[in-house]
Amino acid sequence: MDTGRQQEAAAAGAQAREPLDIRDHGSVGDAYQTIGAPFVDDAKMSARHVNVYYGEKHAITDVSLDIGRNEVIAMIGPSGCGKSTFLRTLNRMNDIIPICRVEGQFYLDGEDIYSQDQDTVLLRARVGMVFQKPNPFPKSIYENVAYGPRIHGLAHNKAEMDEIVESSLRRAGLFEEVKDQLDKPGTGLSGGQQQRLCIARAIAVSPEVILMDEPCSALDPIATARIEELIDELKDNYTIAIVTHSMQQAARVSQRTAYFHLGKLIEVGDTKQIFTMPEHELTENYITGRFG
């Protein structure tokens, strides 16, 4: 892998070490207990005793968490708390960072996704991802959405592909806006449209889980609202894990919320409960805005 990218990864690691004076807000030791209900009955994905290292840096410490079927789970916490890192372990995106080491057990429908015979191509097709910054390919809108089905061989002819593209764009709530300009470059759309295009691109391969890494952080409030509505619609068909640093967004879109702090999963629970009656002092400090 390229050295430049490694340096970026190292920089991301360094950011995680960002000096945050936690003595003021209460601190957790090395051994700790996640408060609340990290486990659910009908888990789509489960993670157990997850530890992630970037080189020497211990980015995630012993996190165990279930993601329920067809639920939206929000992951919140101060920047550099490990929420994005955790999200990326769920479809093994950390594999492409050479200095990153992941420990623990991960299951998708009871299947070990880090086992030797698990295939990352298949896994990533089943667990899709939407990124912080809209990143459409420099291709046409049509080709952006068709990219996944094409590489995975999901459409056997042009008609099938057209259908997949149209239904994906519809599900992402973008079709009506772009139906006359499918051959225009995806990079020409507005930021919010681009992000919905990326969501359409992700769902075109019929994933079961969609991971969203701060999908609205680069968007204006109106575009954000549109994406949030979309997430709400998508949850009927998909399981969604969303990382956000907007507590309002977490409250609006998610059923469950997990609060991360310095690489540790502090508290998990129903969104309503987390935002109204947090049990842990750190959670409370965070959601009341004392730091973040």
């Binding site: 191509v121 298949l122 097709a125 590489i151 995975h152 999901l154 391969v205 019929s206 068909n237």
Partner: peptide
């Protein structure tokens, strides 16, 4: 919720992907 519906489509595509994997690798 039509999770059964979704599951079917997803597993359909999983199977298609699996079939193409050997060639792609």
């Amino acid at each position: 919720m039509n999770s059964t519906n979704e599951g079917a489509s997803a597993s359909h595509s999983s199977a298609a992907i699996k079939a193409s994997l050997k060639k792609r690798y």
